[in-house]
């Protein structure tokens, strides 16, 4: 017989096997999930959840698909949090500090409480990446925030009303587009293709009998 634990979904008690995640425990309890369930494997950030273990003071945050249930866990899902996403044109935006000031001025109101970092479901140093954004250090902000799944839990804890994942998204795009080094071999290849340099080769492959293609495939040289 499986070992059971008691959990409280939105305050209501259910007895569920101890080896389930919060997500599968909800399903076990009878919830047919629609909201709050996306990839089921820690990538999409749909399943942000807050919980408190009875008797403990700390309110914890997690991803429901990545967290095992515990006895006396009080659970509330946070399937939506109103983040602020500014719109901008990537073609005309300038990779300068002023961008952050224009689009997300609230980051300068950070009080350094570190609640965001403590809450991050991915264990990221959120306060630090916001600090990089303040300084216009997009590269560092991008690096520090890379594993962000945009679940919004940090923002739900922030007294300054910052939408951290959106700030980080902007920093990463600016970094990827404007600050990362360009790529010559890519530019060249795109041009070669446009110029038709491979047309003949491809055309030949389109016409070849399957037997010849099999031969080509089976004897192809493989880069070490």
């Amino acid at each position: 017989m499986e070992n059971m634990v008691n959990i409280f979904l939105f305050g209501k008690k259910y007895s569920v096997p101890e080896n389930l995640t919060i997500m599968t425990a909800m399903e076990y309890a009878g919830y047919q999930l629609v909201r709050g369930c996306g990839c089921r494997n820690g990538f999409c950030g749909a399943c942000a959840t807050i919980y408190r273990i009875k008797g403990e003071r700390e309110l914890k945050a997690c991803l429901a698909c990545q967290t095992k249930v515990e006895d006396n866990m009080y659970i509330a899902t946070l399937p939506f949090f109103p983040l602020v996403k500014q719109v901008y044109d990537m073609e005309t935006i300038k990779p300068t500090e002023a961008v952050m000031m224009q689009l997300y001025p609230e980051i300068y109101a950070c009080v350094g409480c570190n609640a965001c970092t403590k809450a991050c479901t991915q264990g990221l140093n959120v306060m630090q990446y916001i600090a990089y954004a303040q300084r216009g250090d997009f590269e560092k902000c991008a690096e520090e925030s890379f594993d962000c799944v945009m679940c919004g839990v940090c923002s739900s804890r922030c007294p300054a009303g910052i939408s951290h994942p959106q700030v980080a998204m902007l920093a990463r795009r600016i970094n990827g587009k404007y600050l990362a080094p360009g790529c010559d071999h890519l530019e060249n290849r795109v041009k070669e293709i446009k110029d038709g340099s491979f047309n003949e080769l491809i055309e030949a492959l389109m016409q070849k009998p399957v037997e010849e293609l099999k031969e080509l495939y089976n004897t192809r040289e493989i880069e070490k």
Binding site: M90, A142, F146, R172, R173, I174, N175, G176, K177, A180, P181, G182, C183, D184, H185, L186, E187, R189, V190, I193, F198, I202
Partner: peptide, 26 residues
């Protein structure tokens, strides 16, 4: 296969951060 390099370029221009060497080589 023929549109592949342009697809990578398009993503790069949108700001996708591909792993690159310091000189930009993928």
């Amino acid at each position: 296969v023929c549109d592949a390099p342009e697809a990578i370029q398009w993503l790069s221009n949108l700001g996708v951060e591909f792993d690159k060497d310091a000189d930009g080589t993928m």
